[in-house]
Amino acid sequence: LVDKVLRQIKTESGGNPHAKQHGADPDGDGSGPALGLMQTKRSTFDAYKLPGHGDLWNGFDDLLAGLNYAKHRYGDSLSALGNGHGYANGG
């Protein structure tokens, strides 16, 4: 599992906890850019952050929220991680 998570981080942010997707609203849906280590949208991070871990720019906090999101979205096996694409649709 650790290798899968590390591959996902490399795909999402290249390991940069301060990574920011280019543009103010790249998806054109008002959700803003993807941010941080796991490249979550601010609203996704806020919905899946764990108590006491609310700093999106802290790699550990963002990792916890990103994994919590992936678990809820794709299941406990986290099989969607580490396959060389972003979360949503392989984009």
Rank of each mutant, 00 (worst) to 15 (best):
D29F: 08
N89I: 11
G90M: 08
R73H: 11
N89P: 03
S79K: 13
L35G: 01
P17M: 13
A47D: 13
V5S: 10
K41A: 01
A19L: 07
A47C: 00
K20M: 13
P33D: 03
K4G: 07
G84L: 09
G32C: 08
Y69T: 03
G32M: 09
A80D: 07
R42H: 05
K20A: 14
N89R: 13
N16Q: 09
A34K: 11
W57N: 08
K49L: 03
K4A: 15
A88K: 12
M38S: 02
P33K: 01
P33R: 04
G54P: 00
A88R: 09
A65Y: 12
D76K: 09
R42N: 02
G59H: 15
G91R: 15
A88E: 06
P51Q: 07
P33S: 02
V2Q: 14
D61V: 05
N83T: 15
S31F: 06
K20D: 01
G23L: 08
S13D: 09
K71C: 04
Q8T: 15
L63Y: 13
K20S: 07
D27Q: 09
N16I: 11
E12R: 09
Y87S: 05
R73E: 13
P17W: 13
L56E: 09
H85K: 15
P26F: 04
Q21F: 05
S13L: 04
S77E: 13
G59W: 13
K71M: 04
G52C: 07
T44I: 03
G14W: 03
D61I: 05
G91W: 13
G75N: 07
H53N: 07
P33C: 04
T44L: 03
L63G: 06
N89D: 15
L35W: 07
Q39D: 02
N68K: 12
T11E: 15
D61P: 04
L6M: 13
N89M: 06
E12K: 06
G86S: 14
Y74S: 09
L6I: 09
Y87H: 14
H18A: 14
Q21W: 01
F60D: 14
K49N: 02
G82I: 08
D27N: 09
L6V: 12
L81Y: 07
Q8D: 04
P26R: 02
N83S: 12
G36R: 07
T11D: 05
A34G: 05
S31T: 10
A65T: 05
G84K: 11
S43D: 08
G14N: 10
K20E: 15
H72K: 13
Y74V: 02
A34H: 06
K20W: 04
D29K: 13
A80W: 06
A47R: 14
G54R: 11
Y48N: 10
Q21R: 04
A70H: 06
P33T: 05
L81E: 12
K71G: 02
Q39E: 03
Y74K: 02
G84N: 11
F60V: 14
F45D: 03
G86W: 14
P17R: 14
G90W: 04
I9M: 08
G32D: 05
Y74R: 01
A19W: 07
N89W: 09
